[in-house]
Amino acid sequence: MATSKKVITREEWEKKLNAVKLRKEDMNTLVMNFLVTEGYVEAAEKFQRESGTKPEIDLATITDRMAVKKAVQNGNVEDAIEKVNDLNPEILDTNPELFFHLQQQRLIELIRQGRTEEALEFAQEELAPRGEENTASEVNAAILTSQSHEKDPKLPSLLKMLIWAQKQLDEKAVYPHINDLSTGQLEDPSE
């Protein structure tokens, strides 16, 4: 398969880039999806007002979700469990692993508060290897799933897809790449 690769100059490539029809609504949807999934409710509200983009789920549910996340982050695990059950009691029933992690977290908090003896017994058996940030995102994801919303924003997947698509095209062509994802700057083909 010694077929030579097609060489696409920067000029040709830029022409192709400029010919792409991106819809502004789609861009805005992507941004809104990020804000909603990551739980930035105020930014999402402002964005709805500034761009007219409708959020894909009720913004009020983000507030609830973030309150749970925050409770876990602050170590109020009991409070968090209660809030999750208020939201939807099935979440913890259907996620035994998550419930377990929350219990672990509770233990860690007990230890932190100096109530070591209480905690020690259980902790010796199953000391949590994960920090509260992990558990917090786990709760966040479980709630999103229960609301039949994807747990990850679409933006990172699209960025991964870009790297993948560039790699795929590398097999067949030489063309300008984008290597710096934060600036999106086009770089001349290396050959």
Binding site: K6, I8, W13, K16, L17, N18, V20, L22, M27, L30, V31, L158, L159, M161, L162, A165, Q166, Q168, L169, K172, A173, Y175, I178, L181, S182, T183, G184, Q185, L186
Partner: peptide, 21 residues
């Protein structure tokens, strides 16, 4: 274009170009 748009344009063109090849 904002950087985000540049990335999505690049993604689109890479996919289209590969398909055309």
């Amino acid at each position: 274009h904002s950087p985000l748009e540049k990335l999505l344009r690049q993604l689109t063109v890479c996919c289209l170009e590969r398909r055309s090849l």
